[in-house]
Simulated assay, not measured.
Amino acid sequence: PRLGWTEEAMIAGSKDVGVSPSIVGSFSRKEAALVEYFMDDCLQLLIDRVASGLDLQNLIPSERVSKLVRIRLEMQIPYMSKWPQALSIQAHPVNVPTSFKQRAMLVDEIWHTVGDGASDLDWYVKRTVLGGVYSTTEIYMLTDNSPEYRDTWAFLDDRVKDAFDLKKSIQEAKYFAQDIGAGVGKSFQGLMNGVMQTMSTRGGRSSAF
């Protein structure tokens, strides 16, 4: 965490595992490759956690979604001080396609685990909405100073409950698509400002996002 998502961190990591630091030169997108590896690793950890017997049976669907998103976001806590840097790397135009793909895979895995069998338009709406819930909770988490991120988890629960209102979900999916179109290609700060402004204008904690 101290070195952040940098080439220096990759060099230090190679030394820790007894590999020549020269191997870092084989990565053309060094910082991006590091973040993408972390994202893939976290997804696999989530899949393994579910496969090992994570108890979701006694939870209603919205609670299952909240629990899975929380488990995934908790994996970022040790790196929280450097996570804005990771988001900035992901928001770079060159890295956006892979970033979107990884988040789409995460969202799809969560819905699959919850037991969602939606198809056609409903399938896309649900995944778009959950992607918005995940991303805004992730950003909210960056400025949360409450004990053990208590406010973040309350924020997440509220967003998920709202997202299960289908009519609101469809409308919010349209909003989120507009936000993505406006955000791609902007700086990380601009993207964050856009999301936070969207949250504010739609009623803050009372909106689906």
Rank of each mutant, 00 (worst) to 15 (best):
F209T: 06
Y149L: 14
I11V: 15
T6G: 04
V94R: 14
G190N: 02
V160G: 07
G203Y: 11
W153M: 06
Q102M: 09
W123R: 09
F188E: 03
R2M: 09
D108A: 14
S206W: 05
A9P: 12
I60T: 12
W153C: 01
K186E: 03
E36V: 00
G190V: 06
E138D: 08
S99N: 09
Y140L: 00
Q85K: 13
Q189E: 13
Q189L: 11
L156Y: 04
D158C: 06
N145I: 13
I47Y: 03
Y175Q: 12
V133E: 04
M75R: 10
Q90R: 11
G131S: 13
L46D: 02
P84V: 05
S62C: 08
Q171C: 03
Y37C: 09
R127F: 01
S187R: 01
G190I: 09
G183D: 12
S66N: 12
E138V: 00
V24I: 15
S81N: 15
T201P: 00
Y134R: 01
K67H: 02
P61D: 11
A91R: 08
A51S: 13
I139T: 07
W5I: 01
D16G: 00
E7L: 12
Q189M: 11
T201V: 13
A33Q: 04
G185R: 09
S26R: 10
P84R: 08
A182L: 14
D158Q: 10
V69A: 04
N95W: 07
L130G: 01
Q171Y: 03
Q76A: 11
M10V: 15
E7K: 15
G183Q: 09
A32V: 00
M141S: 06
G204S: 14
E63P: 01
K101I: 13
M141Q: 05
S81Q: 15
L130Y: 04
D48W: 00
R150P: 00
L156S: 05
L166H: 12
W5L: 07
T128L: 07
I11Q: 13
A86I: 02
E172P: 00
K82L: 04
V114N: 07
